[in-house]
Design a protein around this nucleic acid. Structure first.
Lengths: 190, 190
DNA sequence: CTGAAATTACAGAAATTCCTGAAATCCGGT
DNA sequence: ACCGGATTTCAGGAATTTCTGTAATTTCAG
């Protein structure tokens, strides 16, 4: 490996984390390198930077493309493929979220739905189904939220994050006002 | 494996997904089995249900305990350990989020901070640091949001999820009103 | 303190994943 | 069509992870 020390540290760390993440070490390292690189890189530059085989780089890039995490670039008059991570880190976040959902959540959701269609054949299965229903409900709440929020432009998304739990304070205030109004008018629930 | 068909399908699916998830197949299966079980189970019941070795079950349970995903239970007059998944699925979600953050995010955050303290030794490193700064900023925004939101009780959390992007509509309305007020009074920015 | 039941540690076997070099394929220029 | 460089595919070896059986340890009733 032949990189400036700071970049090398980052690349190595990403490689380590890669394995906690469902991607392998090399893929993590390649991505880290592309991420901190001001220019797109071609495969041989990655080979040189990371000190791994050409074919391994090829497979790694292929996987990153499957995740939509790198863009292919071309330099006029150069036949080689160049690769770059998106400049916009929010876009990277969106892609990551989308791809992880696709791989880690959607298959489970479809299995749950399928199992919930079945007629339980025993008390054990009946109970299991009730648990699956809870799980299905929770995942649907989360994915509905995600599907809704992901459509926001980045500025609004950042605002929403900044608000965090304060949102509920607003709601509490609204609730108090509404129930106060009801009380004055003498209608509504106790 | 010796389970009712519906439960077996669920257990097998969870096992498969486990590997996309940083936990191994067996651990996924054990958890799935505990999750759909109305009563706590002891290790031998898991051995029988899943058809794997006793020691493998022991290691799996140990790992689930490290993740705080199972609770140890005791039955009076019985020396064996019994294990159960929490009843409350929201609690499971919270635990998962917390543990994944601890394993997948926090280490990166601390590496980023450390690397950002260093003096860049070249133009390449200077650029890399600017990228790391973006990444650090994004992760901090996300973890701040998470730290804030996780304190909400479940009911409010569910409400927040249900609102989703609608929150920003409220904010937009507020902004319009505020700027309208400014315009009438003739002060404020254009 | 003893001993039976239960649990865990651990070494090696089995399975899986990762990586490499060689061969095959692709592609634009002549 | 052919050449030459760039890229990908793929078989098999290396490395890692997972699983098992045995042995050691813990636990607790008596």
């Amino acid at each position: 490996m032949n990189l400036p020390p700071l970049i090398q540290s980052f690349v190595l760390h990403f490689g380590e984390m890669g394995s906690r993440w469902g991607i392998n070490r090399t893929v993590g390292q390649i991505y880290a390198l592309l991420y901190v690189s001001p220019e797109p890189l071609c495969a041989d530059q990655i080979v040189e930077g990371l000190g791994i085989s050409r074919s391994n780089v090829s497979m790694g890039l292929r996987e990153l493309q499957a995740w939509n995490l790198v863009a292919l670039r071309h330099i006029p008059g150069d036949r080689r493929d160049f690769f770059a991570a998106p400049d916009d880190i929010w876009q990277i976040l969106r892609t990551l979220a989308e791809e992880r959902k696709k791989r880690e959540v959607d298959p489970t959701l479809s299995v749950l739905r399928e199992l919930l269609m079945q007629q339980p054949g025993s008390e054990e299965e009946r109970f299991a189904q009730s648990r699956l229903m809870e799980m299905n409900g929770l995942i649907e709440q989360l994915t509905n939220w995600y599907d809704d929020v992901k459509r926001l432009d980045t500025e609004r998304l950042a605002t929403l994050l900044g608000l965090g739990s304060k949102v509920t304070k607003l709601l509490d205030a609204k609730d108090r006002i509404v129930s106060l109004g009801r009380k004055r008018r003498g209608d509504g629930q106790p």
